[in-house]
C-alpha cells in the first residue's frame, strides 16, 4: 500500500468516523440523562436525509434552506418522540422505555416507507462536490474534507452549549442525579426536550452529509449506521460526549482500514462492529472514557 493510498483511506475513515460521531453524540447524551438507549435515533438520522430530499423535490427549496429546514423539522420530531413515547414512561422500568423506543423506530421507518416508498431514491449532489481535489498524489472528494470540518465545528458548538451555558449546566446536573435536579429547580422536562432536540439536530446533520457522501436514500438506511454509532458511543464510554466523538472516529477509521488491509474480510465489515460491541461490553463496559454507572441496590 502506497503512502498516498494510506492517507486517502485515513481521510475516508475520518469522514465516516465523524458521521458516526455526530450520531453517537445523540445516543450518549440521552443515555447520560435518562439511561435510555434511544432506539429511534437511527430513524431520526434517516429522516434528516429524507426531509432534505423532500424540500428539494417537492418545495423546490434552495440547498441551503432545505438543509436548515430539514434539521429544524428533524429536531422537532426528536422532541415530539420524547414527549409522546418516552416521557410517560419515566417512572416505569427502564426496559419499558426501550421497548417503546423500538416501537417508535419501526413506526418511523415504516411511515417513511408509506410516505416515500421502499425503493432507494437518488440524491443529486451539487456539482462542486463532485470534482476531486488533488493534494500531491492524494485524490480526495471535497466532501472528504468538508464533512470532518463541519462535524468538528458542530461538536465545538455542542461542547460550548454543554459546558458554558445554563441549559448545559442543567444537562450535566440531570445526568448526575435527576431527582435532586428537580428539587434544585432545574426545569428537567425542558432540559430533556432540549437534549433530544440537539441530539436529533446533530443526527439530522449527519444524515444529510451521509446522503451527500453515499447518494442513495432508503427507509432502512439508518439501521446500520445507527447501530454502529451506538457501538461507537459504548466504545467511547456511554454518557461521555468526548467519548462518543473519539469512539465514532476510531470506529470509522478502523472499519475503513480493516477493509483496506484485509479485502477478503469485506463481507464481514458489518459483523466487525458488533463483535467489537460484545468484546467491549465484556472487557470494559464503561468504555474508553465513561464514568462507572452502578446499579443501586
Amino acid at each position: 500500500m502506497t503512502w498516498a493510498m494510506f492517507v486517502q483511506h485515513a481521510l475516508n475513515g475520518l469522514t465516516l468516523g465523524s458521521l458516526y460521531a455526530l450520531i453517537a453524540i445523540g445516543y450518549t447524551m440521552v443515555y447520560g440523562i435518562l439511561r435510555l438507549i434511544n432506539f429511534a435515533h437511527s430513524e431520526i438520522f434517516m429522516l434528516g436525509a429524507y426531509f432534505v430530499l423532500w424540500g428539494l423535490t417537492l418545495f423546490y427549496l434552495p440547498w441551503f434552506v432545505a438543509i436548515v429546514v430539514a434539521i429544524v423539522v428533524t429536531a422537532a420530531i426528536g422532541i415530539l418522540v420524547d414527549r409522546v413515547a418516552y416521557r410517560p414512561l419515566r417512572d416505569a422500568p427502564r426496559i419499558s422505555a426501550l421497548i417503546s423506543a423500538i416501537g417508535v423506530s419501526f413506526f418511523l421507518q415504516n411511515l417513511t416507507i408509506v410516505a416515500f416508498g421502499a425503493l432507494p431514491r437518488e440524491v443529486y449532489r451539487p456539482a462542486w462536490l463532485e470534482n476531486p481535489i488533488l493534494m500531491g498524489e492524494v485524490r480526495v472528494l471535497p466532501l472528504t474534507l468538508f464533512v470532518p470540518t463541519l462535524s468538528f465545528l458542530l461538536m465545538l458548538g455542542l461542547v460550548w452549549v454543554v459546558y458554558k451555558t445554563k441549559p448545559g449546566l442543567g444537562m450535566r446536573a440531570i445526568s448526575k442525579d435527576i431527582e435532586t435536579s428537580y428539587i434544585m429547580g432545574v426545569p428537567v422536562n425542558r432540559i430533556i426536550s432540549l437534549t433530544f432536540g440537539i441530539g436529533s439536530a446533530l443526527a439530522a446533520a449527519s444524515g444529510i452529509m451521509w446522503a451527500l457522501r453515499y447518494p442513495q436514500l432508503q427507509p432502512v438506511m439508518g439501521s446500520i449506521p445507527g447501530f454502529k454509532a451506538f457501538i461507537a458511543a459504548v466504545f467511547g464510554g456511554i454518557g461521555s460526549i468526548p467519548g462518543a466523538v473519539v469512539g465514532g472516529i476510531m470506529l470509522g477509521v478502523i472499519e475503513i482500514m480493516a477493509v483496506a488491509f484485509f479485502p477478503d474480510l469485506a463481507g464481514y465489515r458489518d459483523a466487525f462492529a458488533f463483535i467489537l460491541l460484545i468484546v467491549i461490553l465484556l472487557i470494559k463496559p464503561t468504555g474508553l472514557m465513561g464514568a462507572r454507572l452502578e446499579d443501586k441496590v
Partner: peptide, 22 residues
C-alpha cells in the same frame, strides 16, 4: 396497496400497549 402500513399499525399498537397497558 400501501406498503409498510402493516408494520405502522403494529408498531403503533406496541407503543400504545407499553404506554397504557404495560
Amino acid at each position: 396497496g400501501i406498503p409498510g402500513m402493516r408494520m405502522v399499525v403494529f408498531s403503533l399498537a406496541l407503543i400504545f400497549m407499553i404506554l397504557f397497558r404495560r
